[in-house]
């Protein structure tokens, strides 16, 4: 038997948050069956819970992806520039060095760069 309204609210919230274990669920459903006041309290909480769900906002996948890209670029400010320079050097080397050497340089470069 749960006496205070505060405790009743707690158990209702835990139910809404899906945090009740099996034994607590039994208590919850028993209260729902046997106590009119608890039923009324649950109905009011359920209404509030349902009414508030549309407040939640979601971003589009593109928006989310764009912000992630921005964060990663800001966190690693030289990565974009480094990529351009690396590509430029590789192209330059491919012009200067004989063809059989290039794959070895690329492999050596990949091995030396850890992400």
């Amino acid at each position: 038997m749960i006496e205070s309204e505060e405790k009743k609210l707690d158990i209702i919230l835990q139910y809404l948050h899906n945090q009740l274990n099996n034994q607590e669920k039994l208590v919850f459903f028993n209260l729902l069956k046997t106590e009119t006041a608890f039923r009324a309290l649950f109905a009011a909480e359920w209404r509030l819970y349902k009414e508030l769900q549309p407040v939640k906002r979601k971003m589009s996948a593109a928006q989310k992806e764009h912000i992630l890209k921005e964060v990663l670029e800001q966190a690693n400010p030289y990565s974009a520039g480094e990529k351009v320079i690396t590509k430029f050097i590789q192209e330059l080397l491919s012009l200067i060095l004989p063809v059989p050497v290039m794959p070895f340089i690329k492999i050596a470069k990949e091995l030396s760069v850890s992400d």
Partner: peptide
């Protein structure tokens, strides 16, 4: 990301500001 964006938007009510703050938040997380 959605949880943080929604939390920020709920408070600032401005999409662009919410996106800026989301970015700053995840930069700190990073």
């Amino acid at each position: 990301a959605d949880t943080v964006y929604s939390f920020i938007y709920f408070k600032v009510k401005d999409r662009f500001l919410a996106e800026d703050l989301l970015q700053e938040t995840f930069l700190a997380v990073y």
